[in-house]
Nucleic acid binder design. Structure first.
Lengths: 354, 354
DNA sequence: ATGAAAGCGCTAACAT
DNA sequence: ATGTTAGCGCTTTCAT
């Protein structure tokens, strides 16, 4: 591979291979109407010169930019970064998104946008104008922001709405909140639990409801009652404490609790400790999200993994498919979640055959 | 702000303001030779139309790309992401780098490159050819990779080497490992400790040595001996366990230990617990890096914060300065670190006035 | 102080 | 199956 100061362009390749620019372009883009023999010759020149097309030039000529924009909420993301509590949502997005992009010769650019601000439009249009991305990935709470959705629709840029089940413009992709709540509930039922409490998340997030639904559905299917077993939280540690106390202070307290996120599970663990309730011997606990903190609790928490990486990878695939003029899936895409077993679940006290 | 399907270009602005393209360009780039009156008129048109220059076009015409590439080691980064243990190096880089970039109208693109592979060159040149970034940020272990450094030097792209103190091409920026080791040591001395053990990190990283140096220097300055107080680790939990055991098994065991990273501090905590040594009553502990896990230990760890965000922000500043033809700093840039106080430090046992 | 022309590297559209 | 032409949006000359 010859290295030069002056970047090697399509011209150099064309000259070296003794063909026209267009032929080189066709080879780069895997277009038809090139004889294998030609293709080989051009490819040889490309390899020899170490040629890589400039995405700026590709963009300019009306082709793709090979850029996919992943947009997160600014305030929330920065707050998480500063808190340094190990929230790895962004990391998991990069893991799933960047690697999938790389497979297809794309690049993922991560952006922060202020949902609540009145200049969302300006911010977003600015990013789009500057970068001209081939697609955009929206995450909550942007995914259901009507202003943003309308704007992207109008711009005719393929976009995926992660964590949304709403219809409308864009391609919704969701993690299986309801299904995994069913799974978690079933997992406890299998082990002999009958009184399974559930701590719900904030109503502001639709997924809170989906998780409750899954629990309710699975309990109903097993013929188990849910009265007095639902406590409301808002995803914060403090709300988790209050909810856990509500459930555990009762004489007929549940033998297991599912918390809608890790923070509230952590809070539940604290409350249990303060009440002298041993986990998992006296109380089984399953949390949602499987963020890093589940490794550091005593005991480590069995948790429903939120498949952020897989979901982001799926989003990238859908965008690239859309760019290739393939039709979007007719129905909502749901990415399955799994339970990661650790040490916070045991059969209920007094259960035979632990 | 008028919104259009067709992106608004410099032409639209020029037409709207009744000036030439060139004048608009001058206004965008803050160039001289534009009357205030003209400038104002053009700016009004820009605002009215919501115009944002296309970076692809800017790049094409030989100007900047407004892109800064931050490169991390592929294997290590992916391993951290998959482990989900809350390592937030990447997040902190984004926090510092993205926000600083945004201040200057730049964008940061995060890339993974395989240090060890024999096709580092191809990978890097590929990224450079595709993106034509205005600058590159290298992190360990890339920062001291001679192949990479030579290559970037040849390409004449401004680049910063984070975590390197070596001379040579590129701009080195380092966190204050030695100074902060001094600080941590002094912090313990002030509280009455005299026998302060130190667990070193892997020799493969230069910063391991710097941290040891700081400890040694501060101990010497206080007239304290260090014999038998240094144990070697390699940043892993297992190595931390062995090192801690080495230090704590002795009859005249230290009353305080500084561990070169959080994992080894965590290991030290475990060893202390297993030996019935209470932290901080019987043993004070300070760790390095201040990654998220320090929040989750019992007790939470007092730690030397590794200022990744500040360092990355500094790197961005230096690159932009270089692009503006400002001279690089004559000497190594060192970003100061601070100690974050939590609950793992107390006066040594039997010390008056705790 | 302003404008006009040329060209950056590539691809779409149009020849051949 | 291959080549030629025009043009993407911008900045750099080079006029004026």
């Amino acid at each position: 591979m010859v290295r030069r100061r002056q970047a090697v362009t399509i011209k150099h390749v064309a000259a070296d291979a003794g063909v026209s620019l267009q032929t080189v372009s066709r080879v780069i883009n895997n277009e038809p109407n090139v004889r294998p023999e030609m293709k080989e010759r051009v490819q040889a020149a490309i390899d020899k010169l170490g040629y890589v097309p400039s995405i700026a030039a590709q963009r300019m000529s009306g082709s793709r930019s090979y850029l996919i924009l992943a947009i997160n909420d600014r305030d929330r993301t920065i707050a998480d970064w500063r808190a340094r509590l190990g929230t790895d949502w962004v990391d998991q997005m990069l893991l799933g998104g960047m690697l999938k992009c790389a497979e297809h010769g794309y690049r993922m650019i991560f952006e922060l946008v202020d949902t609540h601000s009145d200049h969302v439009e300006r911010e977003l249009l600015g990013a789009i104008a500057a970068l001209r991305p081939d697609g955009i990935i929206l995450t909550p709470p942007h995914s259901d922001n009507p202003q943003i959705v309308a704007l992207l629709d109008e711009q005719e840029i393929p976009f995926v709405r992660i964590g949304s089940k709403q219809n409308g413009a864009g391609i919704p992709v969701s993690m299986d909140d309801e299904g995994s709540a069913c799974q978690a509930t079933g997992y406890l039922i299998e082990r002999g639990h009958k009184a399974i409490g559930f701590i719900a998340g904030s109503n502001e997030y639709e997924l809170s409801g989906w998780r409750v639904d899954g629990w309710r559905k699975e309990m109903a299917q097993a013929g188990l009652a849910t009265d007095g077993l639902l406590a409301e939280g808002d995803f914060s540690f403090a709300s988790g404490e209050a909810a856990a106390r509500e459930l555990l202070d009762r004489a007929d307290r549940p033998s297991a609790i599912i918390a809608s996120n890790d923070q509230m599970a952590l809070a539940t663990l604290e409350v249990a400790r303060s009440l002298g309730i041993a986990v998992p011997q006296d109380l089984s606990l399953i949390s949602f999200d499987n963020t890093p903190l589940v490794h550091f609790t005593q005991p480590p928490l069995t948790a429903v993994d939120q498949p952020i990486a897989a979901t982001t990878a799926k989003a990238v695939e859908l965008i690239i498919a859309a760019r290739n003029a393939e039709p979007a899936p007719a129905r909502l895409t749901i990415v399955p979640a799994t339970i990661v077993e650790r040490d916070s679940v045991a059969p209920p006290p007094g259960h035979a055959g632990g």
